[in-house]
């Protein structure tokens, strides 16, 4: 028998409240081109991106700490497959431990030739030093900055 299909698309808009902590973080990125983390007073760990409470101690974080722009690669991947709603491949991104931080922050890695996967992976290996770079025009968003080899 004939088997039919019906195409359905979900499209819903959300306006997520960011709260004071993330708002401060983005304002600093936009206005100063700087990345800030927040310290948990009990463990002394600096959480980047900043959270208003530590999920380990469940205590509110206290003081702001400017971190980076230097740091080291903690994890990376290089994507060669096209996914819907994601950029055209290839691209590299991952997590970087910025100087002064205790947790790693996500971002794109730019300025690396990705044609040869093994060679690119060797350049991005865990522990490699990188530096955060900021866009000239910043809107206060995660993509206002990226990482390049130091």
């Amino acid at each position: 028998m004939e088997l039919m299909e019906r195409q359905e698309t979900w499209s819903i808009t959300y306006n997520h409240a960011l709260g004071e902590t993330a708002s401060y973080f983005y304002a600093k990125i936009r206005d100063e081109g700087a990345i800030y983390g927040k310290r948990c007073a009990k463990t002394n760990r600096v959480l980047v991106p900043p959270r208003s409470f530590s999920d380990e101690t469940l205590l509110p974080t206290t003081d702001w700490v400017k971190v980076g722009p230097g740091g080291r690669i903690e994890a990376f991947t290089i994507v060669y497959e096209k996914f819907n709603n994601l950029p055209d491949p290839p691209y590299a991104f991952g997590y970087v431990l910025l100087d002064g931080a205790d947790t790693a922050l996500g971002g794109y890695f730019k300025g690396i030739d990705l044609k040869d996967p093994a060679a690119a992976a060797a350049k991005l290996k865990v522990g490699t030093r990188v530096k955060a770079k900021f866009a000239e025009k910043r809107t206060g968003a995660m993509l206002d900055f990226w990482f390049e080899l130091a």
């Binding site: 997520h16 409240a17 960011l18 709260g19 004071e20 902590t21 993330a22 208003s52 409470f53 469940l58």
Partner: peptide, 24 residues
């Protein structure tokens, strides 16, 4: 709306623990 949803949940959970006289 001065707290993110995650922070709202944190506040609520903490209030319930306080009401019970417990910690996490």
């Amino acid at each position: 709306r001065d707290r993110s949803l995650e922070e709202v949940i944190y506040d609520t959970a903490q209030l319930a623990l306080t009401d019970a006289g417990l910690t996490i």
